[in-house]
Simulated scan of single mutants.
Amino acid sequence: MKAQTLETQKALSPDAALQLLKEGNARFVQNQKADRNLLEQVQDTVGGQYPFAVVLSCIDSRTSSELVFDLGIGDIFSARVAGNVVNDDILGSMEYAVKYAGSKLVVVLGHTKCGAVGAACQDVKDGNITTLLEKIKPAIGRSNPEDADAVAGENVRVMIEEIRNRSEIIANAEASGSIKIVGGMYDISTGKVDFYS
């Protein structure tokens, strides 16, 4: 597989971009990999990058978006922070991806057995971790705090709302149909991602 180009990126619809992630995850779950030369993709992207999506996921070492979606160099922007929470820097990065780099899809990807969500459910307070976990608290109020995986799924929905409410650039792009915003949950026991709006 070749690296994304300006032409291939422009030709993708938001739904087609989502389909690429679904197909990549299916390959991952089946332990198959697309035939790509990563060093060739390194060279192909020297002159520019044209990622078709921006994925906000957790820093959890088991949840690398490039691996989970069987992607290559230059395919996506990958933002990672504990609990896949939204902050100003993440929003600015997503706005750049959408408005200036042409990405067609914004994904918030949570996962099962999330340590940050579990810590928020247990009301952990410690240093800067406290501030981060406060961003997850709205999801606890909408779900059963005894079920951390349900809270993690609700946290994805809360973060999507945050993106829409706090970023006029992204909200306008979604309203115009030039991008799509979706959520997903990665199951760390199976490798499968389930998507939802």
Rank of each mutant, 00 (worst) to 15 (best):
K22A: 11
G153A: 14
L71C: 05
V117N: 13
R166H: 10
L91P: 10
T131Y: 12
V68M: 08
F28E: 00
S176Q: 08
G153F: 00
N37Q: 02
D123P: 11
G24M: 12
S167T: 07
Y186R: 06
I140W: 03
F69M: 07
D88L: 14
A82C: 05
V42D: 09
T112D: 01
A148T: 14
E134I: 02
D187M: 11
A16Y: 09
D126A: 12
I181P: 07
L109R: 04
N155L: 01
F28L: 07
L91H: 03
V156D: 02
S143K: 10
I59A: 12
D35F: 05
G92F: 10
S143F: 15
K10Q: 14
F28D: 02
R80K: 01
F195E: 09
Q122S: 15
L67H: 06
A173M: 02
A171Y: 00
S167Y: 07
V86I: 15
I163H: 08
S176A: 10
I181Y: 08
C58T: 01
M159V: 01
V85G: 10
T112F: 09
Y196G: 09
L38P: 14
K113Q: 13
A119P: 02
I170S: 11
A16I: 05
S57V: 07
T112L: 11
G127C: 04
Y100A: 01
Q122E: 15
